[in-house]
């Protein structure tokens, strides 16, 4: 299982644009090349690095294009109109937003409106997810396609959904007493042998 912090860990690898206030040549990370850094010019770095640099006052984070109130309102409308899940502007939209807004919320114009729009979108999708899950279980639940669902949203129904499906599968598989039980707590023959032993002692 995963907790939200781990989903965030994965989301932190996403790239975001920053504007550094220093100059530096390319940095060769194990995960790839970053830079070069030229003061005042935008450069793409992973979010984890962006947050660290921002905390050390070495850069300004540029909010991604999609984190814009109008665009989010449009996304909400699209989501509401569609029966299925629509594709989100980022695979980790909620985690990225949380990370970026926590790190530099005060720099971002209309941050509160962005937060509200995002929360509305999230709530809408979560509500859709809840009813999909309920329908899925009610109709037997062997397999489902979940395109465009982000990892954090998927993780919100973990472990409830997979475990419930597992139980449903177990209950649907009838155990016949005439076939040997493989996974069973008590060894039935052992109990009988205890009784026999006690008879003859």
């Amino acid at each position: 299982m995963m907790d939200p912090a781990e989903v965030e860990f994965i989301a932190e690898k996403q790239m975001v644009e920053i504007v550094p206030n220093f100059n530096f040549d390319r940095v060769y990370l194990i995960s790839g090349e970053i830079g070069p850094f030229r003061a005042g010019l935008p450069v793409k770095v992973p979010i984890w690095m962006a947050i660290n640099l921002r905390q050390r006052q070495k850069c300004r984070i540029l909010v991604p294009d999609w984190m814009d109130v109008e665009k989010l309102e449009q996304a909400k409308e699209d989501e509401s109109a569609s029966r299925y899940f629509t594709k989100m502007p980022s695979e980790h939209y909620m985690a990225e937003a949380q990370l970026i807004l926590s790190a530099c919320g005060e720099d971002v114009p209309r941050a509160d409106e962005i937060r509200t729009a995002l929360k509305d979108l999230w709530d809408m999708r979560m509500s859709k997810l809840r009813s999909s899950v309920d329908t899925f279980i009610k109709t037997g639940g062997t397999h489902a396609r979940l395109d465009h669902l982000t990892l954090m949203e998927m993780n919100s129904v973990r472990p409830l959904l997979p475990h419930a499906l597992d139980q449903l599968h177990r209950l649907s598989t009838v155990r016949f007493v005439f076939s040997p039980l493989v996974n069973s707590s008590s060894c039935f023959d052992m109990h009988i042998s205890i009784l026999y032993y006690c008879f003859w002692c």
């Binding site: 926590s102 919100s156 409830l160």
Partner: peptide
């Protein structure tokens, strides 16, 4: 189910960047 939901709610309200 409830413990994982509470973890998610805590994350949503506290914002990003907390250590694992």
């Amino acid at each position: 189910g409830r413990s994982s939901w509470e973890a998610l709610e805590a994350w949503l309200s506290q914002g990003g960047g907390r250590p694992i």
